[in-house]
């Protein structure tokens, strides 16, 4: 057997507490790097504001608030995509995937840490986005905020996995949107439905289902995506 298979590296690592500690360490590292370099967050915030400005001109007068709410979700999805193209930038540029894979942390902890870090960026951008939406277009309700939170979890869970796939590909930035968009159709359905339709509950429940299923499968398969 290959060397990789022989090295589990899971001996005496403190169980769940140790696992969560690793996740916190790795996610903290990503937030610290972003705080220093300020590469991603300002770009995402500017992008979402620019997109909304475009929408103002793309929505003719007489367009409903419902159309604007649909547009908001396009903006959020594309902003998330922009952020996700940078998810593994620190690892990719410095060959750090090797560094993390060599270390004895469980591979899924690397994924979970990336999900958490990306969630923080996306949530911060959405505060900006929702404020702008409320100023420019229409009222922001509780259902919408709940939908944003649930949709973010799904997008980041799937996004952190497919972004890792994209780092192995020669096409990288080109292929990430192609990987993520078909997978995010259900998220858009749930999120837009919860924002514009009556009967918010079933849409939120659907989003929660999506989050649970895709998080579980991403968590279980990440190790195969990054290692041989």
């Amino acid at each position: 057997m290959s060397a990789a298979a022989g090295m589990s590296g899971r001996r005496g690592r403190g169980g769940l507490v140790g696992y969560l500690g690793d996740v916190a360490t790795l996610a903290g590292k990503d937030l610290r790097i972003e705080w220093r370099a300020r590469d991603t967050f300002p770009a995402m915030a500017l992008f979402v504001l620019s997109t909304m400005t475009i929408f103002h001109f793309a929505l003719p007068s007489g367009s409903s608030d419902r159309a604007a709410q649909g547009m908001l979700w396009v903006a959020i999805l594309f902003t998330a995509l922009l952020g996700l193209t940078r998810t593994y930038a620190p690892e990719r540029e410095q060959g750090m995937f090797d560094g993390l894979l060599l270390s004895p942390v469980d591979r899924s902890a690397i994924w979970l840490a990336k999900v958490l870090a990306t969630l923080v960026f996306l949530a911060a951008v959405e505060v900006v986005a929702l404020l702008a939406f409320w100023l420019f277009f229409a009222h922001v309700g509780g259902a919408m905020i709940a939908a944003v939170v649930l949709a973010d979890i799904g997008l980041c869970a799937v996004g952190a996995l497919v972004a890792a796939m994209a780092t192995a590909s020669r096409s990288r930035e080109l292929i990430l949107p192609l990987l993520l968009l078909p997978l995010s159709v259900p998220v858009v359905v749930g999120a837009v439905g919860a924002s514009v339709d009556t009967g918010t509950g079933k849409y939120l429940a659907f989003l929660a289902l999506y989050d649970a299923i895709f998080s579980l499968i991403a968590w279980g398969t990440f190790e195969y995506v990054v290692a041989e």
Binding site: L161, M165, L179, P182, L183, V185, P186, V189, G190, G193, K202, Y203, F206, L209, Y210, I213, F214, I217, T221, Y224, V225
Partner: peptide, 19 residues
Amino acid sequence: VYALFGVILIPISFLAIRL
């Protein structure tokens, strides 16, 4: 891994489109 995501996406998308 991508192929596995596909068979999960089929029923989930089906539900989404029904909704």
